[in-house]
Design a protein around this nucleic acid. Structure first.
Lengths: 340, 340
DNA sequence: CTGAAAGCGCTTACAG
DNA sequence: CTGAAAGCGCTTACAG
C-alpha cells in the first residue's frame, strides 16, 4: 500500500503553511513567486494531488454531475450520454449515471441520494422530471438543465431540436418523392417531442385533399409500438404510400411491420423517422430520418450545466437546434408504380 | 434555500452525543433501546440523512463505483451498463461512467481522478486494462473486477462467456442447416474474445474437407470491418454459404455487404453473429446469434465488485457463463438451392 | 504576501 | 451502554 501525500506534507516540505499551499492550489489570493516555486517543487516531488473528498466537504463542490435518463440501453440516450461524458471530462467533471425508467420515484431517489453526495448539478433527459422536482432542486440550490422538456414556465435551461419544423421537413420530403397519402405515427402526447412532431405533420398536411384524421395512429416511441401502429394504419388505409414516424425506433417498427405484411418498405411505402440514431443505418432498407445533432445536444447541455455551476451562465434559455434530413433507402427507393 | 440537518442537530434533539448517533447510524457498538427510539424520532423529525461526503472523508468509503468501458454508445456496452447500474443502485452504490476509447492514457486518467474521489472500486470492460494498471490499483488498495479479460495471471475476478464453446455452437448450427463452406470473420487477436471464438471455429472445422485457412478474414468488431471482411471473403470464395462473425456488429456488416453485392443474406449465405445485442433483432433478415447473457453479466460483475469492496468475496474467480443460440432469419431462411 | 484558527460533517478508538 | 476528543484533508475568513 502506497502512502498518499496530503497538503500538510507539501506545506512542510515547501516550508510554508497549509493555507498558502491551498491558496496556490486554488489560485485564490496572492502567493510570492519564490514560494510558488518551492510549492510547485514540493508537489512534484511528493506527487501530490488534492483529495477531492476533503475538498468537497470543505468547499461544497465535488466536480461531479449526474445524468438522469430513462434508460442507457436505449440507443438514443447512449449516444447522448457519450457526448455528455466527453464534454464533462474536458472540463474536469465526473459523470454519474442514473436510469429512471421514466419513473418519478426512481428519479426522486437519485436526487435524494446524490444531494447527500454534494453533486454539483443535474442533467435530466428524463420525461418524468416535473415542477415538483425542479422546485426541490431549486430549494437545495442545485443547478440543473433539461433535455427537450422544461419542467415549468420558470426559467430553466433546455436543449431540444426544432421539432415542428423537422416534422414538416419529413412530410415535405415524402411529398417530394411522390407520396400521395402520408400517415403519421405520433409519440406520447405528454411529451413535447410527441406533441410538436404531430403539430408539424398536421400543419403540413391539413390542407391536402387526401388528409383524414384516421391517418394518425398513436405509438410509444418504441419498436413494438411502431409495429402495431403500422398494422392498424395499413388495415384502415391499404393505399397509404408514406409513413412519417415520430421517432426512429417506431420507424424501424414500421419497416418490420411492412415486411411482415409482404409490403416492400421503401419501394411501395416510403418511411421517414426522426432522431438520427446510429441504428437507423443498419436497417434494410436504411432508414431515412430527420437527424438531431445528438452529439452536439449532449455537448451543449453539459456545457450549459457546467456554466450554471460555475456561475458564468448569463441567463437561462431554451435552445432549439436545427435538424437535418438524411435521405436513405427507405424513401429514396420509392417508386409508386411498384405497388400498382 | 433549505437548511440541512447534521448529526449534531440530531444528537442535540435526541439528547445524546454525536458518537451515539453515529453508532446507531452505522449499527456499530451498542445503543440502548430507549435512546435508539429517541434518536430515531429525532432523525424523522429533522428529516436527517447522513452527509456522504463527510462520511467519505472520515471513513474512506463513498459507496460509489466506476464503470470504465470503451464507449457507452456501443450497443454492447450500453446494455451492460444498464445492468451494472441496476444492481449497484440496489446495493446502495452510485455508478460513475468513463469512456476510455480503449486508450490506456484515458483509462489511467480515470484512475487518477477517481482515486482522489475515494471511489470504492472499478469495473473494467475496457480492453486496454493491463497488468500495469492492475498493479497501480492493487497498490492503492482499490478493488476491481474485469469483463472478459484478466489483466494478468494473478488472481482477479473476471466475468465472460464460454467463447470457445459458443463459437463451436455457431459453426454446428450452420452445419446443421446445411452449410457446406463456412467462413469466419475473427475479431482482434489481442482480445480474448477475438482469440477464443477463432479457436472455437477452428476446432469445429479443421477436420472438414472443405476447410482452408483462406476462409478466415480479420475484422475489428465493428460494422465497417465486417463489411470489408465479407467483401474479401466472397471475392476469394464465391461459393461460401455460411459466415460466422466474431460478434454481432461484424455480422451486421456481413449482412450489409452481401445485400450490396446482390446476394440474399440468410437464403443464399447464412450468417451467425455473437453477443446477442438488442439490435440483432432489427436487421432484416433478423440476425441469428450466440447470445451472451448481457444483463446477467453486468449484474454478476457488479455484485462481485461490491462483495470485494465489502470484504465478503471468498476468493477471486473467473466466471464463464453459458451462451445460447438464438436462431433467426439469417440462418433459418437458408435454402442452398436458392443459389444454385 | 503569509500563517493560525475554525470549520466542513462525519467516524473511530478510548475512557468511563 | 455512552461521551469527549482527535482526526479525515481540505477551504475560508481574519489577522498580521
Amino acid at each position: 500500500m502506497i502512502v498518499i501525500a496530503t497538503i500538510r506534507d507539501v506545506a512542510k516540505l515547501a516550508g510554508v503553511s497549509v493555507s498558502t499551499v491551498s491558496r496556490y492550489l486554488n489560485k485564490s489570493g496572492y502567493v510570492n513567486v519564490e514560494t510558488e516555486r518551492s510549492i510547485k517543487a514540493a508537489i512534484e516531488k511528493l506527487d501530490y494531488a488534492p483529495n477531492q473528498v476533503a475538498r468537497g466537504l470543505a468547499g461544497k463542490k465535488t466536480n461531479t454531475i449526474a445524468l438522469i435518463l430513462p434508460d442507457i440501453s436505449n440507443l438514443f440516450f447512449s449516444d447522448l450520454a457519450r457526448a455528455v461524458e466527453d464534454v464533462a471530462a474536458t472540463y474536469g467533471y465526473t459523470v454519474i449515471l442514473g436510469n429512471s425508467d421514466d419513473r418519478a420515484d426512481k428519479e426522486k431517489r437519485y436526487i435524494e441520494t446524490l444531494k447527500k453526495k454534494y453533486i454539483d448539478g443535474f442533467i435530466f433527459a428524463s420525461q418524468t422530471f416535473g415542477p415538483e422536482e425542479a422546485e426541490m432542486l431549486t430549494k437545495l440550490g442545485i443547478p440543473f438543465v433539461c433535455l427537450d422538456r422544461a419542467p415549468s414556465e420558470e426559467n430553466a435551461s433546455v436543449v431540444r431540436t426544432k421539432n415542428i419544423e423537422g416534422a414538416s421537413m419529413a412530410v415535405q420530403h415524402l411529398l417530394d418523392i411522390g407520396c400521395r397519402k402520408i400517415a403519421h405515427i405520433y409519440g406520447p402526447q405528454h411529451l413535447i417531442t410527441g406533441r410538436d412532431r404531430l403539430i408539424g405533420y398536421e400543419k403540413s398536411v391539413h390542407a391536402m385533399e387526401w388528409f383524414t384524421p384516421s391517418l394518425l395512429e398513436e405509438g410509444d416511441f418504441r419498436i413494438r409500438g411502431g409495429i402495431s401502429a403500422t398494422e392498424r394504419l395499413m388495415q384502415r388505409h391499404p393505399d397509404i404510400d408514406g409513413i412519417f414516424a415520430g421517432n426512429d425506433l417506431m420507424a424501424i417498427g414500421a419497416l418490420k411491420a411492412l415486411s411482415r405484411m409482404g409490403i416492400k418498405a421503401g419501394e411501395e411505402v416510403a418511411i421517414c423517422g426522426y432522431d438520427g440514431i446510429q441504428t437507423a443505418e443498419i436497417t434494410s432498407p436504411e432508414l431515412t430520418t430527420i437527424a438531431q445533432p445528438l452529439y452536439e445536444m449532449g455537448a451543449l447541455i453539459s456545457r450549459l450545466l457546467i456554466k450554471k455551476i460555475e456561475g458564468t451562465l448569463e441567463k437561462d434559455l431554451t435552445y432549439e437546434l436545427d435538424v437535418k434530413l438524411l435521405a436513405r433507402g427507405s424513401t429514396l427507393d420509392f417508386s409508386p408504380r411498384a405497388k400498382a
